[in-house]
Simulated assay, not measured.
Amino acid sequence: MSTVSVTSPSAANTAVSTTGTLTTPLKDVVQDLPLPAIGEPVIEVQNLTKRYGRNIVHQHLNLEIRRGEIVTLVGGSGSGKTTLVRQILGLEQPTSGTIKMFGEDIATIGAEQARLMRTRTGMLFQQGALFSSLTVFDNIAQPVRELGKVPPDLLRDIVMLKLEMVGLPCKHASKMPAALSGGMIKRVGLARAIVLEPELLFLDEPTAGLDPRSSDEVVDLISTLHRALGLTVVLVTHDLDAMVALSTRVAVLAERRVLVAAPVEEAASVDHPFIREYFLGMRGRRALQALPPERRAKLPPAALASAAVGCKPG
């Protein structure tokens, strides 16, 4: 085995050694690359309704996500963010409406086509969801092994490369999940999510339970992988700082539908009680004021009020 390459066109010049390891940190490789170009729709949710008995979670919900975007799903508890993701992934069936992924209606495709489509997606679960009885290596290798027999040398190169892409030295490959910190578990979960080099990545609360430094590192890693692999990312988070730092658009779920799907500075300008409460409270204003000046200038005046403790928007 001589070389393992990163197949994304935007990271085609990434230096990879003959042992499958990065010769340059991925962040340094991609720091001057432009963001992935926004392309065609890869997820189309149309007129979606989801009921559990008498409880209606979504009603006539519509959402479109385009290639290259990072779209963050935000909303109050019980607004159905994770339920929406589970339906997009085909883990739950909608009561009515249609969901298309890569132009295909996921309710009508055959089993083999569905299997191939799953290889084009990756998922990071909220708590990492690592198999506690498997090593880090075997956790990351699992999706590759499910595809069929892969030569051991090639499998090792793939896993070690993914470990290094998420910022973990290869020495951690033999560890068990119980020996990892919370931040390391998130990184291993990310390595497993990208091991098949998917086009579409779903992240469920990637910074939940992390200290501020680890949270910032995970946000930085997501941004790096977005550029390096040309990913489309669907992010579910309550972390306002992560939302502002990463999002191409924010989709706000309330009243059983998507109220608005727009850049965060535009979403914060919508006159709606939930949006005012969510974006214009102290924590929301503090996060929004971290936007670059040209985007901060588009915020509503109330978002620019002092975010110091005890101050309220005017």
Results as ranks from 00 to 15, higher is better:
Leu190Lys: 06
Leu190Arg: 06
Ala191Gly: 04
Arg192Trp: 00
Ala193Ile: 05
Pro198Met: 01
Glu199Cys: 12
Leu200Phe: 13
Leu201Gly: 09
Leu201Glu: 09
Leu201Trp: 11
Phe202Pro: 01
Asp204Met: 02
Asp204Lys: 02
Asp204Ala: 00
Thr207His: 07
Thr207Cys: 07
Ala208Gln: 09
Gly209Thr: 01
Leu210Arg: 11
Leu210Gly: 09
Asp211Phe: 02
Pro212Leu: 02
Pro212Asn: 07
Ser214Leu: 05
Ser215Asp: 03
Asp216Ser: 14
Asp216Val: 11
Asp216Lys: 14
Val218Tyr: 07
Val218Pro: 07
Val219Asp: 12
Asp220Val: 02
Asp220Lys: 10
Asp220Ser: 14
Ile222Phe: 08
Ser223Thr: 09
Thr224His: 04
Thr224Gly: 02
Leu225Phe: 02
Leu225Glu: 02
His226Trp: 15
Arg227Glu: 09
Arg227Lys: 14
Arg227Trp: 09
Ala228Trp: 02
Ala228Pro: 00
Leu229Ile: 06
Leu231Asn: 05
Thr232Phe: 09
Thr232Tyr: 08
Thr232Pro: 10
Val233Glu: 06
Val234Gly: 06
Leu235Phe: 06
Val236Lys: 03
Val236Asn: 03
His238Arg: 09
His238Trp: 08
Leu246Asp: 03
Ala251Asn: 10
Val252Arg: 05
Ala254Gln: 02
Ala254Glu: 02
Glu255Asn: 11
Glu255Lys: 10
Glu255Pro: 07
Arg257Gly: 11
Leu259Ser: 01
Val260Ser: 11
Ala261Ser: 15
Ala262Phe: 12
Glu265Cys: 11
Glu266Trp: 07
Ala267Tyr: 13
Ala267Trp: 13
Ala268Ile: 11
Val270Asp: 03
Val270Phe: 06
Asp271His: 13
Pro273Asp: 07
Arg276Glu: 13
Glu277Arg: 15
Tyr278Asp: 05
